[in-house]
Protein backbone atom coordinates (compact mmCIF):
# COMPACT_ATOMS: atom_id res chain seq x y z
CA UNK A 1 0.00 0.00 0.00
CA UNK A 2 2.78 2.38 0.94
CA UNK A 3 4.54 1.62 -2.30
CA UNK A 4 1.38 2.53 -4.23
CA UNK A 5 1.10 5.88 -2.43
CA UNK A 6 4.66 6.52 -3.40
CA UNK A 7 3.85 5.80 -7.03
CA UNK A 8 0.85 8.07 -6.94
CA UNK A 9 2.85 10.89 -5.37
CA UNK A 10 5.52 10.50 -7.95
CA UNK A 11 2.97 10.72 -10.69
CA UNK A 12 1.38 13.82 -9.19
CA UNK A 13 4.84 15.34 -8.82
CA UNK A 14 5.49 14.74 -12.48
CA UNK A 15 2.18 16.36 -13.34
CA UNK A 16 3.07 19.40 -11.25
CA UNK A 17 6.36 19.68 -13.07
CA UNK A 18 4.60 19.44 -16.38
CA UNK A 19 2.07 22.08 -15.36
CA UNK A 20 4.82 24.47 -14.29
CA UNK A 21 6.59 23.95 -17.58
CA UNK A 22 3.40 24.65 -19.47
CA UNK A 23 2.81 27.78 -17.43
CA UNK A 24 6.24 29.11 -18.27
CA UNK A 25 5.64 28.35 -21.94
CA UNK A 26 2.68 30.67 -21.88
CA UNK A 27 4.59 33.28 -19.91
CA UNK A 28 7.31 33.28 -22.53
CA UNK A 29 4.74 33.47 -25.26
CA UNK A 30 3.07 36.46 -23.62
CA UNK A 31 6.36 38.18 -23.11
CA UNK A 32 7.36 38.09 -26.74
CA UNK A 33 3.85 38.97 -27.69
CA UNK A 34 3.65 42.10 -25.53
CA UNK A 35 7.19 43.44 -25.73
CA UNK A 36 8.25 42.56 -29.25
CA UNK A 37 8.52 45.34 -31.81
CA UNK A 38 5.30 46.25 -33.47
CA UNK A 39 3.10 44.21 -31.15
CA UNK A 40 3.32 46.22 -27.98
CA UNK A 41 0.79 48.84 -28.97
CA UNK A 42 -1.01 47.14 -31.80
CA UNK A 43 -4.45 48.66 -32.02
CA UNK A 44 -3.58 51.64 -29.87
CA UNK A 45 -3.55 54.76 -31.98
CA UNK A 46 -2.36 57.36 -31.41
CA UNK A 47 0.30 56.36 -28.93
CA UNK A 48 0.61 58.84 -26.10
CA UNK A 49 2.82 59.71 -23.17
CA UNK A 50 1.38 61.45 -20.15
CA UNK A 51 3.28 63.28 -17.47
CA UNK A 52 2.48 65.28 -14.39
CA UNK A 53 4.45 68.48 -13.75
CA UNK A 54 2.63 69.48 -10.57
CA UNK A 55 0.43 72.27 -11.91
CA UNK A 56 -0.13 70.76 -15.32
CA UNK A 57 -0.61 67.47 -17.03
CA UNK A 58 1.31 67.16 -20.26
CA UNK A 59 0.53 64.77 -23.03
CA UNK A 60 2.43 63.91 -26.20
CA UNK A 61 0.75 61.99 -29.00
CA UNK A 62 2.33 60.62 -32.16
CA UNK A 63 0.28 61.85 -35.11
CA UNK A 64 2.47 61.88 -38.20
CA UNK A 65 1.07 63.28 -41.43
CA UNK A 66 -2.07 64.71 -39.91
CA UNK A 67 -3.03 68.30 -40.59
CA UNK A 68 -4.28 70.31 -37.66
CA UNK A 69 -7.60 70.86 -39.45
CA UNK A 70 -8.20 67.11 -39.36
CA UNK A 71 -7.70 66.78 -35.64
CA UNK A 72 -10.19 67.27 -32.83
CA UNK A 73 -9.48 67.45 -29.12
CA UNK A 74 -12.37 67.41 -26.69
CA UNK A 75 -12.14 67.87 -22.95
CA UNK A 76 -14.72 67.66 -20.22
CA UNK A 77 -13.72 67.43 -16.58
CA UNK A 78 -11.22 64.58 -16.57
CA UNK A 79 -12.34 63.13 -19.87
CA UNK A 80 -10.18 63.73 -22.93
CA UNK A 81 -10.86 62.63 -26.45
CA UNK A 82 -8.53 62.86 -29.44
CA UNK A 83 -10.12 62.10 -32.78
CA UNK A 84 -9.42 62.80 -36.40
CA UNK A 85 -8.80 61.45 -39.83
CA UNK A 86 -5.61 60.59 -41.52
CA UNK A 87 -5.99 61.34 -45.19
CA UNK A 88 -4.42 59.08 -47.72
CA UNK A 89 -1.30 60.59 -49.26
CA UNK A 90 -1.28 58.02 -52.02
CA UNK A 91 0.17 59.74 -55.06
CA UNK A 92 -1.59 59.48 -58.39
CA UNK A 93 -0.26 57.25 -61.12
CA UNK A 94 1.99 55.22 -58.87
CA UNK A 95 2.03 51.47 -58.44
CA UNK A 96 1.84 50.47 -54.77
CA UNK A 97 4.54 48.17 -53.39
CA UNK A 98 3.95 48.44 -49.69
CA UNK A 99 1.51 50.20 -47.39
CA UNK A 100 2.11 50.14 -43.68
CA UNK A 101 0.78 53.59 -42.91
CA UNK A 102 -2.93 53.16 -43.35
CA UNK A 103 -5.30 56.06 -43.84
CA UNK A 104 -8.22 55.93 -41.48
CA UNK A 105 -10.23 57.88 -39.00
CA UNK A 106 -9.44 57.32 -35.36
CA UNK A 107 -10.71 58.22 -31.95
CA UNK A 108 -9.17 57.61 -28.58
CA UNK A 109 -10.46 58.68 -25.20
CA UNK A 110 -8.69 58.94 -21.88
CA UNK A 111 -9.66 59.35 -18.29
CA UNK A 112 -7.17 61.81 -16.89
CA UNK A 113 -5.90 61.32 -13.34
CA UNK A 114 -7.55 64.58 -12.26
CA UNK A 115 -9.91 67.30 -13.46
CA UNK A 116 -8.39 69.89 -15.78
CA UNK A 117 -9.23 73.49 -16.53
CA UNK A 118 -10.58 73.04 -20.04
CA UNK A 119 -10.51 76.78 -20.84
CA UNK A 120 -6.75 77.00 -20.47
CA UNK A 121 -5.67 73.89 -22.29
CA UNK A 122 -3.14 74.52 -25.05
CA UNK A 123 -2.47 72.18 -27.94
CA UNK A 124 0.35 72.41 -30.46
CA UNK A 125 1.06 70.16 -33.41
CA UNK A 126 4.63 70.14 -34.63
CA UNK A 127 6.55 67.59 -36.70
CA UNK A 128 3.78 65.06 -36.25
CA UNK A 129 3.72 65.33 -32.46
CA UNK A 130 0.69 66.75 -30.68
CA UNK A 131 1.53 68.34 -27.37
CA UNK A 132 -1.26 69.07 -24.93
CA UNK A 133 -0.70 71.16 -21.83
CA UNK A 134 -3.58 70.58 -19.47
CA UNK A 135 -3.64 72.87 -16.40
CA UNK A 136 -5.12 71.07 -13.42
CA UNK A 137 -8.34 72.37 -11.92
CA UNK A 138 -7.83 74.37 -8.72
CA UNK A 139 -9.19 71.56 -6.60
CA UNK A 140 -6.74 69.07 -8.05
CA UNK A 141 -3.59 71.15 -7.58
CA UNK A 142 -1.15 70.23 -4.88
CA UNK A 143 -1.42 72.48 -1.84
CA UNK A 144 1.03 73.23 0.88
CA UNK A 145 -0.50 72.69 4.31
CA UNK A 146 1.07 74.62 7.13
CA UNK A 147 1.38 72.77 10.42
CA UNK A 148 0.26 74.61 13.51
Amino acid sequence: MIARWHDLNQMLGAMDLFRNQMNSVFNDFDRTYTTGPGWSDAGTYPRTNLSDTGDNLEMLAELPGIAKEDLNVKIQGNYLEISGTRKSDLPEGYQVHRTERGAASFSRSFTLPCDVNAAQVTATLKDGILKLTLPKAETAKPRQISIN
Partner: peptide, 22 residues
Protein backbone atom coordinates in the same frame (compact mmCIF):
# COMPACT_ATOMS: atom_id res chain seq x y z
CA UNK B 1 11.08 51.00 -36.85
CA UNK B 2 9.26 53.56 -38.97
CA UNK B 3 6.17 52.46 -40.87
CA UNK B 4 6.63 53.02 -44.60
CA UNK B 5 4.66 53.16 -47.82
CA UNK B 6 6.51 52.43 -51.05
CA UNK B 7 5.26 53.48 -54.47
CA UNK B 8 6.73 53.31 -57.92
CA UNK B 9 6.04 54.87 -61.28
CA UNK B 10 7.98 55.04 -64.51
CA UNK B 11 10.29 57.76 -63.31
CA UNK B 12 10.95 57.06 -59.65
CA UNK B 13 10.41 55.05 -56.50
CA UNK B 14 8.70 57.03 -53.77
CA UNK B 15 8.93 56.19 -50.10
CA UNK B 16 6.86 57.69 -47.29
CA UNK B 17 8.03 57.03 -43.74
CA UNK B 18 6.35 57.99 -40.48
CA UNK B 19 8.85 59.68 -38.20
CA UNK B 20 6.90 61.80 -35.75
CA UNK B 21 9.01 64.24 -33.76
CA UNK B 22 12.07 64.05 -35.98
Amino acid sequence: TPAVDIFENEGEILLHADMPGV
